[in-house]
Design a protein around this nucleic acid. Structure first.
Length: 426
RNA sequence: GGUGGGGUUCCCGAGUGGCCAAAGGGAUCAGACUGUAAAUCUGACGCGUAAGCUUCGGUGGUUCGAAUCCACCUCCCACCA
């Protein structure tokens, strides 16, 4: 057996990562030995987004403390759709699509946990494996019989949906909790898994599984939920003007990912350090105090962005993100060499090639996506929001050609304070 | 299956024949101020340089004119069965 770090719970609490636990004293006692725990990830898209980062990292924290993590990919539950705290019934995705997504998620999830740790290697499991062959009658008799509908409709996670005018819930979604509960019970049976973690919205589903496991196997298992990540200004965490922040570099470049964290508000950044990094409490406190003393621009955002980008995209991904960020925000674009610019291309900076001999600035803005329409492009130019190679441009009919570019080939177009696009002339 | 209520621009939500590209709020974007913050102020927010064009679940109708009226279809909700 692997040695167990029994300060784990205290560390999680220090980080603010514990929302609720079932029987806290018993759980603390239980975790004195190496245990098996799981967390589920449903395929609702072709990639996970940063909303899943907290549970993924907590799985890792458990593994580092000597426990064995199972990352469950919801091949079965993903076909149903979790209604928990969702305002509306969701559209079902096709079976093919879900199967593709499951494959993607398996890979993604795997990056956060270790598979060759001797005593407590991680495993990825798919609930489709034990759900696909259960026939309806068996399911209703052996599993469904343990659930009381009156208890299920009391669950806070579906209550608001039931109470809300203009919305309802199908039996399919209503039955979701039974499927997830069945997972916990099965994992207990197959792996002796005795703890499920998840977001705070999963409390109802987790306690459902605990009850089912007790009824089917007369076993005491545990649940722990993590807090919902909230921002001080009340807006939703994980979204920017350009949409969701994904963990897949093809959907959100390392650069964009890094920038997302750099832009964390002061009011949130110290909390996020605790949630999303493995820095020790002492290190984090030191950062906070230095920032307070310094008065100027805090360093916390930079630390957070670097740590999280490294966790998700590796050291190389971080370096790429840093190269782009430093080039663009240093304000010294003219000092970039041709090689530097070439590297930005490779690093995943938003960029495009053109074969044209010349382009109007309005065209460039629209084609690069920096402006949604010609009208908006003109508006940006007149508002002084656009600069090229570091120089503000305010002529609506400006025209670009290779000759005016850096090294006769590149234009760095900036719209607003933070959005860039690199244009290369072929 | 029956009865009733709904589907408005990214979201919420007004609008019941012309004054409606459609109130108001939120979100978002830009500028000023800054630290690639926060707060605040200003402006933008269907497309089009403009004339104008395309929108209010879908199709077809009534009308000089429809998001608004009618018919059918479709989806959602509530109650009843």
């Amino acid at each position: 057996m692997t040695a167990v770090d029994n300060t784990l719970l205290a560390d999680l609490q220090m980080r603010g990562l514990v929302n609720q636990m079932t029987s806290p004293e018993d759980l603390a006692e239980h975790l004195q030995e190496s245990r098996v725990l799981y967390c589920g990830f449903d395929p609702t898209a072709d990639s996970l987004h940063i909303g899943s980062l907290v549970p993924l990292l907590v799985l890792r924290r458990f593994q580092q403390a000597g426990h064995k993590p199972l990352a469950l990919v919801g091949g079965a539950t993903g076909m149903i759709g979790d209604p928990s705290f969702k305002a509306q019934e969701r559209k079902l995705n096709t079976v093919d699509i879900i199967a593709q997504w499951v494959d993607r998620l398996k890979k993604q999830v795997s990056a956060f946990i270790e598979f060759n740790d001797h005593g407590n290697s991680a495993e990825v499991v798919n609930n489709y494996d034990w759900t696909k062959n259960v026939d309806v009658l068996t399911f209703l008799r052996d599993v469904g019989k343990h659930f009381s509908v009156s208890a299920m409709i009391q669950k806070e996670s579906v209550k608001q949906r039931l109470d809300r005018d203009g919305e309802g819930i199908s039996f399919t979604e209503f039955a979701y909790i039974i499927l997830q509960s069945f997972d916990f019970s099965e994992l207990y049976k197959q792996y002796n898994c005795s703890l499920q973690i998840g977001g705070s919205d999963q409390w109802g589903n987790i306690t459902g599984g605990i009850d089912l496991t007790r009824r089917q196997h007369r076993a005491q298992v545990f649940g722990l939920t993590l807090p919902l990540v909230t921002k001080s200004d009340g807006t939703k965490f994980g979204k920017t003007e350009s949409g969701t922040i994904w963990l897949d570099a093809k959907k959100t470049s390392q650069y964009a990912f890094y920038q997302f964290w750099i832009n964390t508000a002061d009011a949130d950044v110290y909390k996020f350090l605790r949630f999303f990094t493995f820095l020790s409490e002492a290190e984090m406190v030191a950062i906070e105090e230095q920032d307070k003393a310094a008065q100027g621009k805090p360093q916390a955002q930079g630390v957070l962005a670097a740590e999280v980008t490294r966790l998700v995209h590796g050291e190389e991904g971080l370096q790429a993100a840093l190269r782009i960020s430093e080039s663009l925000f240093s304000g010294q674009l003219e000092q970039l060499t041709g090689d530097d610019l070439q590297q930005l291309f490779l690093d995943g900076m938003p960029a495009s090639d053109t074969q044209q001999a010349e382009l109007t600035l309005v065209q460039v803005l629209v084609e690069s996506g920096l402006a949604k329409s010609n009208k908006m492009a003109r508006e940006f130019i007149t508002n002084n929001a656009v600069s090229i190679n570091g120089e503000k441009i305010s002529e609506v009919d400006a025209v670009l050609s290779p000759a005016s570019g850096l090294h006769g080939q590149y234009h760095v177009i900036k719209r607003g304070k933070k959005l860039f696009h690199l244009l290369r002339w072929a």
